[in-house]
């Protein structure tokens, strides 16, 4: 395509400065903007709020939504560390909602950088600087931390988590934690799985054990996760900061996602204007030449 290139903006640094300018201004004075709510976000919220039936295998599994004691397994196993700035508000709001509903949350990170990201940005916000000292710890929330093994590990955990991984991220025995007493055989004892850009859950859990799975990713994660949503494996998806804003609206929980929307709104508007003006100019010039 670039044989057609003709640089109007000779110094690309102008573009860079423009982008930074927009971001700074958007961040300083965010205003609420209307948000379209896409179907996969609605499905995400409906699954948490009302539940869903998964029927890949007989008998179907009826999930009645997240309520007190619902066992939610959060898999921080995709590219979270790289996408955090795009996922931060959605993950935070959903986590707040899960806590408010009384869910028992088990967290696993598939790589050290994914674990470090949540340790630095999410857990202190929810449970303080030392999450293991929070009163909820072991009762409503357990952090497995980084455990190596990827999908192979998920295969093993489906039968017995504690046998493979006896300790949590802080060295405590899982067997001693009240929350883990009925949260071990993941194929039947995880009521809901929420993947943070996670892959492979369809074949390991959904089609074999009818586990309800929801996904959260960056804005462009949709390009590779949408297939599994349209095929019915994922019962809902929340993508990027727009997804965060959608969830804030659906759940009524206040958050910061809307300031990001203002940023994308301004950038989008300017880009659309630039493309239209540049092309009108181009067409007029071409006509003149002819």
């Amino acid at each position: 395509m670039n044989e057609m290139a003709k640089i109007n903006w000779k110094d690309t640094r102008l573009i860079y400065i423009m982008v930074f300018g927009i971001i700074y201004i958007s961040s300083l004075a965010p205003i609420a903007l209307p948000v379209p709510i896409v179907q996969w976000s609605k499905d995400f919220y409906t699954t948490i709020n009302e539940g869903v039936t998964v029927d890949f295998n007989d008998p179907p599994r009826e999930f009645g939504g997240v309520e007190e004691g619902t066992r939610v397994f959060v898999l921080n196993s995709g590219e979270t560390s790289k996408l955090w700035g795009d996922m931060s508000e959605a993950v935070t709001t959903v986590w707040k909602d899960l806590r408010a509903r009384g869910a028992n949350i088990l967290l696993w990170s598939s790589s050290p950088d994914n674990a470090a990201t949540l340790n630095k940005y999410l857990l202190p916000l929810m449970y303080g600087i030392n999450p293991q000292n929070h009163p909820d710890y072991g009762v409503k929330f357990v952090n497995l931390g980084y455990v190596a093994g990827g999908n192979q590990l998920l295969e093993q955990w489906k039968d017995d988590l504690i046998a493979i991984t006896p300790y949590d991220a802080y060295g405590n025995s899982l067997a001693d934690m009240p929350m883990m007493s009925n949260f071990n055989e993941l194929k039947v004892e995880a009521d809901l799985m929420i993947g943070l850009d996670a892959r492979g859950l369809e074949t390991i859990y959904v089609v074999r054990y009818n586990t309800p799975v929801l996904e959260m990713g960056g804005t462009d994660s949709a390009s590779y996760l949408a297939l599994s949503y349209t095929a019915g494996y994922f019962k809902g998806m929340i993508m990027g900061q727009r997804g965060g804003a959608e969830y804030e609206i659906l759940s009524g929980i206040a958050g910061k996602a809307r300031s990001y929307l203002q940023n994308t709104f301004t950038i989008s508007t300017i880009m659309v204007i630039i493309m239209i003006v540049a092309n009108v100019q181009y067409v007029l010039k071409k006509k003149e030449e002819n």
Binding site: M1, N2, E3, D220, S223, Y224
Partner: peptide
Amino acid sequence: WPNDNSMAALVAD
């Protein structure tokens, strides 16, 4: 990966 290819489609000779 297809998304990486989209970037190549944008600028590659």
